[in-house]
């Protein structure tokens, strides 16, 4: 698994890279700036990017958005000291598949990397709260056209994640398989990211039509 680390703090960058190396990942690049990250990623084609939201040049959100257009698209795990809910939500909508606070332990971090590498969404309680809030914000908007909706089961699962239950605990409580819980969580994210892409395209078309 080829991994790239993007963090402007050298101590963090080295520490994270070392942890990943010890855990058997191939760290192909460790950079400290957003623009540099995009250039290097185009050359070394990482499969997974560990991304800090706070960067000196581009915002982490912008980096996540542009990485989502790469082919093959790298999976992005946001690792940030940031408590900025809006930034985290934007990064996830732009294509990041998980978010972890920097205060998480090494074990939690490696577990999150493993799950991201497998293509799973990494939902902390904080992220679940943000995503649930975003669906409700969209539901309250005036235009009902093709806005994303959660099924009742998905809402139920997300609420339990937000309350700090592990997938195993949720599976037990709802009498579901672990995999099913995982799929529900993944779906909530996929729908939100799809909606975000549709909105971006619609915005681009509107701008284009206005310009002509």
């Amino acid at each position: 698994m080829r991994v790239m680390v993007v963090d402007d703090h050298p101590m963090w960058r080295d520490g994270v890279a070392r942890d990943l190396g010890e855990a058997g990942y191939e760290v192909v690049a460790a950079v400290g700036e957003g623009g540099q990250a995009l250039r290097v990623a185009a050359a070394v084609r990482p499969e997974l990017v560990v991304l800090d939201l706070r960067l000196p040049d581009l915002s982490g959100v912008e980096v996540a958005r542009r990485l989502a257009a790469y082919d093959p698209q790298p999976r992005v795990l946001v690792l940030s000291a940031s408590g900025e809910q809006e930034d985290v939500l934007e990064a996830v909508k732009a294509g990041a598949s998980g978010y972890l606070l920097k205060s998480a332990s090494k074990e939690e971090f490696l577990e999150a990397v493993r799950r991201t590498a497998e293509g799973d969404a990494v939902f902390t309680p904080g992220l679940a709260g943000l995503v649930l809030g975003e669906y409700r914000r969209l539901a309250a908007q005036a235009a009902p056209v093709d806005r994303p909706r959660l099924t009742e089961r998905e809402t139920e699962v997300l609420r339990l994640v937000a309350k700090g239950l592990s997938y195993r605990q949720i599976a037990e409580r709802l009498v579901l398989s672990h995999r099913t819980v995982q799929n529900h969580v993944q779906n909530t994210l996929n729908k939100l990211q799809l909606h975000n892409r549709v909105e971006l395209v619609r915005y681009a078309i509107e701008q284009g039509l206005d310009g002509s």
Binding site: D8, S103, S105
Partner: peptide, 18 residues
């Protein structure tokens, strides 16, 4: 503070746990 102190505190916490 975000770019310096918080990063170091988080790092201390993480390494301390290890």
């Amino acid at each position: 503070i975000h770019d310096s102190v918080l990063q170091v505190l988080a790092l201390v916490q993480r390494r301390g746990q290890e």
